[in-house]
């Protein structure tokens, strides 16, 4: 009761109430956690774009005289703030370059899987019948098989070029997008605007790409965002196992992978990239959930 009366008394004092209300509505739309997550992601994207300008050393530069130096505040010097690894390479430079590689790979892969998913979903929705059934069966088969296992097999047999790696990761999550795009396109087909476009004589291409796609794009974008953490985890797991990105190429998982051999003597090699993987996937998940709640609460 006391709280309610409090609320009433402040509401009579006009200005104070509205000030508080504004702040509250702002915090409701932009929870502090979301702001933190967005800020972190902005930083990651900034690093991904400008990494070559930000790194104090070349990420491959070997310095045998400065091997396994600890980070600055743990007994090391400031010329290698995050320490060095077993070959004397600067951990900070390697981490920044790895962020660039991992983020780029994750974004490219997600774009590919979205494109595949939307295309197959639209094909299923347009043709229905046996095409629909075939696509749904493949979706079911994909759902029945852990993608990680498929990826391990394919990768090692196809070899390890960056292109193949990105294309393979681009298959991750396509089945989710296919299902969403198919469902949305089928229901969009029954709506007035699609029917109107068809009546005017628009081609199926035009109807699907110029009318239906823009109308369902919000949901697709949310699905894309929710796909990214999975890709980051998959890429880092594969690189960690030594069958993802190959040296001298570097990625966050790759750093953790060789860092684990020095877990006793130089834990900083693996701790920094590990922390970045965790915070980044966490941030993307938080952003994805927030976007979903804002844009399309039905997608759960």
């Amino acid at each position: 009761m006391a709280i309610e009366q409090d609320g009433l008394s402040t509401s009579t004092e006009g200005s104070v109430f509205t000030e508080k209300g504004k702040l509250q509505t702002f915090l409701q739309a932009w929870p502090p956690l979301v702001i933190l997550a967005l800020a972190w992601l902005a930083l990651m994207i900034f690093i991904a774009i400008f990494a070559p300008l930000l790194t104090p050393y070349d990420f491959m530069a070997v310095d045998v005289l400065a091997r396994l130096k600890p980070p600055a505040f743990f007994g090391g010097a400031f010329n290698h703030i995050l320490g060095t690894d077993q070959l004397g390479r600067d951990v900070l430079s390697r981490t920044l370059t790895s962020i660039r590689v991992s983020i780029t790979v994750a974004i490219c892969a997600t774009m590919i899987s979205t494109a595949i998913g939307v295309m197959l979903g639209f094909l299923a929705a347009y043709f229905r019948g046996w095409v629909d059934q075939v696509i749904l069966t493949i979706v079911d088969a994909q759902l029945a098989m852990p993608f990680m296992i498929i990826a391990i097999a394919v990768l090692a047999f196809l070899g390890n070029s960056l292109t193949i790696f990105v294309m393979l990761l681009g298959l991750y999550g396509w089945e989710q997008v296919t299902r969403i795009a198919r469902g949305l396109a089928i229901s969009a087909n029954t709506q007035g605007y699609a029917a109107a476009a068809r009546e005017i004589g628009a081609s199926p291409w035009r109807i699907y790409l110029r009318h239906i796609l823009p109308n369902i794009s919000a949901t697709i974008v949310v699905a894309m965002t929710l796909n990214i953490p999975g890709v980051i985890l998959l890429e880092s797991s594969l690189s960690f196992l030594g069958i993802g990105l190959q040296p001298p190429q570097t990625s966050l998982g790759n750093m953790v992978g060789y860092g684990r051999d020095y877990i006793q003597s130089a834990p900083w090699i693996m701790l920094m990239p590990s922390a970045i993987i965790v915070i980044t996937t966490l941030s993307v998940s938080i952003m994805g959930d927030w976007l979903r709640d804002r844009i399309d609460p039905t997608l759960k």
């Binding site: 880092s236 998982g253 992978g257 684990r260 834990p267 965790v278």
Partner: peptide
Amino acid sequence: SIFGFTVPPFVLALVLALVFAV
């Protein structure tokens, strides 16, 4: 639970190894 979701298994495994084994 969110942490359990987003921490990759190899990081969790290495952190546990670092704490309990090393």
